[in-house]
């Protein structure tokens, strides 16, 4: 199980690296789609069907939005010469990445091994949730019952985002 997921995450890393370095923006967007759809397979493998359904819908919508934006504008990556500033940025990025890697190496010591985590918080959600919420799907029970206000806030965020997109796309900019 862990090996299968590792192989898929490896493919995701390859797709991410290609998406970052592709010359054509449209291929970069589609390579980003590799990452999103591989995530769906991972969710299915770790027994999270609700996440897989939501992720496949969200990824499709994201891909459609991104491709619409790319087709409406320019497809070519503006690669200038690889000047000193680019080297400085890449060097700074590598230093930051190394520091974060070192921090994660220390933090990972306190992680449980894969698949051996204990259900610390969720015992209350699992035992007796069916009687309390009336939903056989525990994820639905958590989202809509135990954490209903959280979902209300999420809906608020969605409405705000839709209003923001409409406002941004409709206003007339200064010439």
């Amino acid at each position: 199980m862990e090996l299968t997921i590792s192989v898929i995450v490896g493919f995701m890393i390859l797709g991410a690296i290609y998406a970052i370095h592709a010359r054509d923006i449209l291929s970069a967007v589609i390579a980003g789609g590799i990452v999103g759809y591989s995530l769906v397979i991972c969710f299915l493998l770790i027994k999270a069907p609700d996440l897989a359904i939501v992720q496949i819908v969200v990824e499709t919508i994201t891909l459609i939005i991104m491709i619409a934006v790319v087709l409406d504008s320019s497809r070519t990556e503006a690669y200038g010469r690889f000047d000193g500033q680019a080297y400085a940025t890449a060097g700074a990025a590598l230093v930051i990445l190394l520091i974060l890697f070192w921090l994660f190496r220390h933090a990972s010591a306190s992680l449980d091994h894969f698949g051996e985590g204990t259900l610390r918080m969720s015992d209350a959600y699992i035992n007796g949730a069916v009687e309390k919420t009336g939903s056989v799907n525990l994820v639905t029970g958590v989202i809509f019952d135990f954490r209903g206000y959280d979902t209300l806030g999420e809906a608020t965020v969605l409405v705000t985002a839709v209003l923001g997109v409409l406002t941004i796309l409709r206003i007339r900019g200064r010439k």
Binding site: T62, V139, V142, I143
Partner: peptide, 16 residues
Amino acid sequence: PLPQAMVLTAIVIGLA
């Protein structure tokens, strides 16, 4: 089920 519910919220907000 708890991380799954949290991630479900986060995915939708990520779309927004």
